[in-house]
Amino acid sequence: MKQRHVAVLGAGVMGSAIAALAVGNGLPVTLVDVDRAVLDRARGEVTRHLRLARLMGAQTGTDVAELRTTVDLSDVADADVVVEAVTELADVKAKVLAEVSALVGPEALVLTNTSAIPVDELAGSVAYPERTVGAHFMNPPYLIKTVEVVRGPRSSEAALAVARDFLTGMGREVVVVGDGPGFVINRVLQRMINEAARIADEGLATPEEIDLLFTGCLGHRTGPLATADLIGLDNVVDSLRVLRDRTGDQGYEPSALLLAKVADGDFGRKTGRGFYEHRGTK
């Protein structure tokens, strides 16, 4: 794999995990966030992710590259791969993508890790829309090898080839899909989470019982509500709203239970409580 300088925009749950994947595969990363305290925490998270990846056998090499952190977006001007992983709000993503695309060169690949916003919608904000591709990593990306890569209507074959080389060079398996709200994974997954939350709210089954049925009967690694806690219930609600607004399907209207948990600050693993208690993870 060609040696690349990777810029990761957003140092939250996914941004820090993507940064860990890249540096663990020998690619230097500049991690950007507007909040220095978030960046300081992210550095510790990257170290934790790398340790876990080694324990799980997901990273066997020792060639860990440099991780730089910065609050200055201009520090990524020389990056040739940009991975956008900011919050799932279209206006925020569009603003960040517009700013970074004005800084990097015309040959730089811009990957958006959006969960549900159509890639072409975001590509309308960048200087070179043909160099913009969706790369929907699953959490945690250093353990889940498959990446849903989204070909926007304006994504070029050259950009897709670079995206494939970048991802496969880190040991990822690429599945290329077409563009649209939620793509494949989240068009199905977010609806499933929403329905599972409604079932729990109706008292038909507990979260534990719902997830046990999915793991025991359908062979899922985790059920929908444990998965929601891993994603972050705030991110689930944001993704559901994107899907509702862009498809007109009211089945994506966030359930009352999801909204209540988010209002209470119970986002899942990252806050220590969601549908489950997560001790020692906050």
Results as ranks from 00 to 15, higher is better:
69 T>F: 06
133 V>I: 10
103 L>G: 14
140 P>N: 03
113 N>T: 03
101 S>E: 10
118 P>C: 11
96 V>W: 07
93 K>D: 00
115 S>A: 12
88 E>F: 08
72 D>T: 15
104 V>E: 04
105 G>S: 13
137 F>W: 03
125 S>P: 09
109 L>S: 08
115 S>I: 11
101 S>A: 11
130 E>G: 11
77 A>E: 14
97 L>D: 05
79 A>C: 09
69 T>Y: 06
71 V>R: 14
103 L>Q: 15
129 P>V: 07
73 L>G: 13
127 A>P: 10
113 N>F: 03
124 G>W: 04
81 V>G: 05
88 E>I: 10
135 A>G: 06
90 A>D: 06
89 L>G: 05
99 E>C: 08
82 V>N: 03
141 P>C: 01
82 V>R: 03
108 A>C: 14
89 L>R: 15
86 V>N: 01
110 V>K: 04
77 A>C: 14
102 A>Y: 14
126 V>L: 07
100 V>Q: 09
129 P>I: 05
108 A>I: 13
76 V>M: 07
70 T>V: 13
124 G>P: 06
141 P>Q: 01
96 V>Y: 04
135 A>S: 05
93 K>I: 05
80 D>H: 09
75 D>M: 14
79 A>D: 06
93 K>F: 02
81 V>I: 13
128 Y>D: 13
127 A>L: 13
134 G>S: 00
67 L>C: 11
113 N>P: 05
77 A>H: 15
65 A>N: 11
94 A>G: 12
123 A>R: 07
95 K>D: 15
98 A>L: 09
102 A>I: 15
65 A>D: 09
114 T>K: 01
129 P>N: 05
111 L>A: 10
78 D>M: 08
84 E>C: 01
78 D>N: 12
139 N>E: 02
115 S>E: 07
128 Y>S: 12
123 A>T: 08
112 T>C: 04
142 Y>R: 02
142 Y>S: 00
100 V>I: 14
101 S>N: 11
91 D>M: 05
90 A>Y: 03
66 E>M: 12
133 V>Q: 03
107 E>L: 12
78 D>V: 13
115 S>G: 13
127 A>N: 10
134 G>P: 00
65 A>Y: 10
91 D>G: 03
133 V>A: 01
95 K>Y: 07
86 V>K: 02
91 D>Q: 10
138 M>E: 01
96 V>F: 07
98 A>G: 15
82 V>P: 06
89 L>P: 03
68 R>Y: 08
71 V>P: 12
82 V>Q: 02
110 V>N: 04
125 S>F: 05
68 R>D: 09
120 D>E: 13
114 T>V: 07
103 L>D: 14
106 P>H: 10
107 E>I: 12
142 Y>F: 05
140 P>L: 04
123 A>G: 07
123 A>P: 08
